[in-house]
Design a protein around this nucleic acid. Structure first.
Length: 579
DNA sequence: GCCGTTTTCGGCCCGACTGTTTTCAGTCG
C-alpha cells in the first residue's frame, strides 16, 4: 500500500491548487474523488496497475490512471509538478484554516504575500486583514481562532475520549425533558477512530429550552454560537460540539444527512437524482411535484431511493451502496455476540487486578470465557512471567473455572524477539490454551526487517493471535513500519487470527487493515488488552472497528462458543503435533 | 476530469450561515 497515500496526497493537493486557480469545480471534484478512491483502496495501487485495472476503480478515468502509472514508474507526476510551480509553495496549507477557502487564500497571497500559517497569524494580529475586501474584524478574529485550532493537533480526539463525552452530553440534554428524540450523528456515529467534533441531533417542541440547556452544560468551555435551532460550543476537552433541533418530519433525513460521510451522502444524492428524486436534510422529494415522500425516519430515506438501511459504520462510499443495491450488506458483528475476551493482564505481570477479579468482572459482562494472557519472561519492564511462575499460574487458573462459573483459559502475550523468535520454549507454549504474539521492543526496524520478523513468528505455527499488529498509539506513536499485506497473507497461510485491540489508545488493527485481513480470509480477534477489571468495558470500541471492517460474527474468533473455541484451539495444536 | 438502462455530450448534490454588504460571495458540512 506504499504508493496509495503518496498518490492520493498528490491528487488532493492538485484539487486544492486547481481550486485556488479558479478551475472548473467539476474538474476539481474529479481530482478529489480520485484522491479518495486511491486512498480507500484495500490493496496497493501498483498491483491494480500491473493488472491494467486502474480504470475499473470508480472515480479513476483515463487521465488519472495515466498519472498513477507515471508516478509508479518515475516517482513523479509531471502535471502535479507543473501545477505546483505556478503557485507559491505553502499556499494550500492556508486552506486548512476554517473560513479560509481558495478565494481567501489567493486574496491573502496577492494582497499581502501570505503563504504560511505563521505569516497569516502575524497579519491577523497586526490587524492587517480587516482592510481586505469582504473582510472585517470578525473575520480576523475567526481566522486567529482557526489557526489556533489547526495547531491544536488538527483538534481530533480518539473515539474512546469523544464517545463518553458525547454520551454524557446526550444524557444531560435528555434530562431537560424538552427533548423528544436525540441521537449522536457525524463521524462519531460512524465510529471513526478519531473525531473532529460532536454532532447531536434533537427533535423538541421547545428548541430554545434545549439550546439553553446545551450551552449551559457542565463541559462547555466556550459558546461559539447560540441560535434558536442550532448552537456550537467548545468543550473542556477541546472538542467542538454542535446541537441542532429539527422537525420530527425531517428527523430521519437530518440524521442521515449529518451522519455522513460526505462522500456517502454525495453518492446517495446522485442516486436520488437518477431516480427523479431530490435528497436534502429535510427529506426525500419527488422532483416533478416537489412532494416529500420520506424523511421521518432514516430507514425510510434509504428505502425511498431503493436501498435497505445501511449501518452508519459502513457509510464511507467504500462499496456499501453497491452492496446494499445487490442485497449483500453484511450482518455486522455486535458486542452482544462476543462470548469472551482473549487478551487481558493481571497482577501477575503489569495488570492492576487479580486473575480472579478479572474473571469475576468478565462473568458480570455475561462472557462465557476469559483468557489470561500476561507478558512473557523477557519483557521485564512489564513484569514478564518466568516459565516456572507461568506453570504455577496455570494451575491456579484451571481451578478458577470451576469456582467462578466462567471458563478461564490460560494463555500468554508472548514477546516476538527481534529475530522473530518466541519468548518461551515450544513445549511451554504447547501447554497453553491461547498464544498471543506481540512486538513490544525494537520498534524502529526497517519495514522489511519488521515484516520478516513478524512473519517468522507467525510461521512458528505456535501463535493463535497476533496482538496489536502495528503497535500504534493513537495520537502518540505512529505504527511501526511494516508491510501489512505480507502480514495478512502470512496470517492467512498459518491460520493466525489478527487482533483488533480495543484499548482506546490503540484500536490496532485499524479499520481498513482489518477489512483487508477479513477479505483475505483471516479471522479477527477483538480483545480489550485490559490491564484492570474496568477496562474489560472497552470491548465496544474494538467492535466498532470490526464493524467498520465489515466483519460479521463468523469473522471474529471470540464469537465462538466455548466448545467451538476449544475445538478450534485444539485443532491447531493437533495439527502441529502431527507434523 | 469522470461518466452513461434517458446521455459518448452535457451534465456533475444541496442548503445554511456568516460577515460583509446593500444584494451576496465565500465557506462549510
Amino acid at each position: 500500500m506504499t504508493h496509495n497515500r503518496a498518490i492520493a496526497e498528490r491528487f488532493a493537493q492538485m484539487a486544492d491548487m486547481l481550486e485556488i486557480k479558479g478551475e472548473s469545480i467539476f474538474r476539481i471534484n474529479a481530482y478529489r474523488r480520485a484522491a479518495r478512491a486511491v486512498e480507500g483502496l484495500t490493496e496497493d495501487v501498483a498491483a491494480l496497475a500491473a493488472r491494467g485495472e486502474l480504470t475499473n476503480i470508480p472515480g479513476i478515468g483515463k487521465a488519472t490512471a495515466e498519472k498513477i502509472v507515471e508516478f509508479l514508474r518515475t516517482g513523479t507526476m509531471k502535471a502535479y509538478d507543473e501545477l505546483a510551480a505556478t503557485l507559491p509553495p505553502g499556499l494550500t496549507t492556508l486552506m486548512a484554516v476554517p473560513e479560509v477557502g481558495p478565494k481567501t487564500a489567493l486574496l491573502l497571497y496577492e494582497q499581502l504575500g501570505i503563504t504560511s500559517l505563521d505569516a497569516l497569524e502575524a497579519a491577523a494580529k497586526a490587524g492587517r486583514l480587516r482592510d481586505l475586501p469582504r473582510m472585517g474584524p470578525k473575520t480576523e478574529e475567526n481566522i486567529l481562532r482557526g489557526i489556533a485550532m489547526v495547531r491544536r493537533s488538527a483538534a481530533r480526539r480518539p473515539l474512546g475520549v469523544a464517545l463518553p463525552v458525547a454520551e454524557a452530553l446526550v444524557a444531560t440534554l435528555r434530562e431537560t425533558r424538552e427533548v423528544d428524540a436525540i441521537e449522536v450523528a457525524g463521524s462519531l456515529r460512524r465510529r471513526k477512530e478519531t473525531v473532529g467534533d460532536i454532532d447531536i441531533l434533537v427533535t423538541s417542541r421547545s428548541p430554545e429550552r434545549v439550546m439553553e440547556a446545551f450551552v449551559a452544560a457542565p463541559p462547555v468551555a466556550q459558546v461559539l454560537s447560540h441560535g434558536p435551532t442550532r448552537s456550537s460550543v467548545i468543550l473542556d476537552v477541546g472538542l467542538q460540539a454542535d446541537v441542532r433541533v429539527v422537525e420530527p418530519a425531517s428527523y430521519g433525513a437530518a440524521l442521515q444527512y449529518f451522519t455522513g460521510s460526505k462522500e456517502h451522502n454525495v453518492a446517495l444524492r446522485e442516486r436520488a437524482v437518477r431516480r427523479g428524486l431530490k435528497l436534502n436534510e429535510y427529506g426525500v422529494w419527488r422532483t416533478k411535484d416537489d412532494r416529500r415522500i420520506a424523511g421521518r425516519d432514516e430507514a425510510g430515506v434509504y428505502n425511498a431511493v431503493g436501498l435497505p438501511w445501511i449501518p452508519p459504520e459502513l457509510r464511507e462510499d467504500a462499496g456499501e451502496l453497491e452492496a446494499a443495491e445487490a442485497g449483500r450488506l453484511p450482518t455486522l458483528v455486535t458486542v452482544e455476540e462476543i462470548r469472551g475476551d482473549l487478551h487481558v493482564h493481571t497482577t501477575w505481570s503489569d495488570g492492576a487486578s487479580s486473575a480472579e477479579a478479572m474473571a469475576t468482572a468478565a462473568k458480570a459482562l455475561g462472557y462465557a470465557y476469559l483468557c489470561i494472557t500476561d507478558h512473557s519472561q523477557s519483557l521485564k519492564v512489564a513484569g514478564g512471567v518466568s516459565v516456572e511462575d507461568l506453570r504455577a499460574h496455570a494451575a491456579v487458573v484451571r481451578r478458577l473455572s470451576d469456582r467462578l462459573g466462567i471458563e478461564v483459559l490460560m494463555g500468554t502475550e508472548c514477546d516476538i524477539g527481534p529475530d522473530g523468535a518466541l519468548d518461551y520454549p515450544d513445549e511451554v507454549l504447547d501447554d497453553l490454551d491461547v498464544v498471543i504474539a506481540s512486538v513490544h521492543t525494537r520498534f524502529r526496524m526497517s519495514r522489511d526487517e519488521m515484516t520478516r520478523r513478524i512473519v517468522r513468528a507467525l510461521e512458528t505455527g505456535r501463535v493463535d493471535i497476533l496482538g496489536h499488529p502495528t503497535g500504534r498509539l493513537l495520537g502518540a506513536r505512529d505504527p511501526y513500519e511494516v508491510d501489512i499485506e505480507r502480514i495478512v497473507d502470512a496470517a492467512a497461510r498459518s491460520g493466525v487470527a489478527l487482533e483488533i485491540n480495543a484499548s482506546p489508545e490503540r484500536l490496532d488493527l485499524k479499520d481498513t487493515d482489518a477489512r483487508l485481513a477479513r477479505e483475505r480470509g483471516v479471522r479477527l480477534a477483538v480483545n480489550t488488552d485490559a490491564h484492570a477489571a474496568a477496562e474489560l468495558r472497552h470491548m465496544p470500541l474494538g467492535i466498532s472497528v470490526a464493524r467498520r471492517a465489515w466483519a460479521e460474527a463468523a469473522d471474529v474468533l471470540n464469537t465462538l462458543s466455548p466448545t467451538a473455541l476449544r475445538a478450534h484451539l485444539r485443532g491447531r495444536r493437533g495439527a502441529r503435533r502431527r507434523r
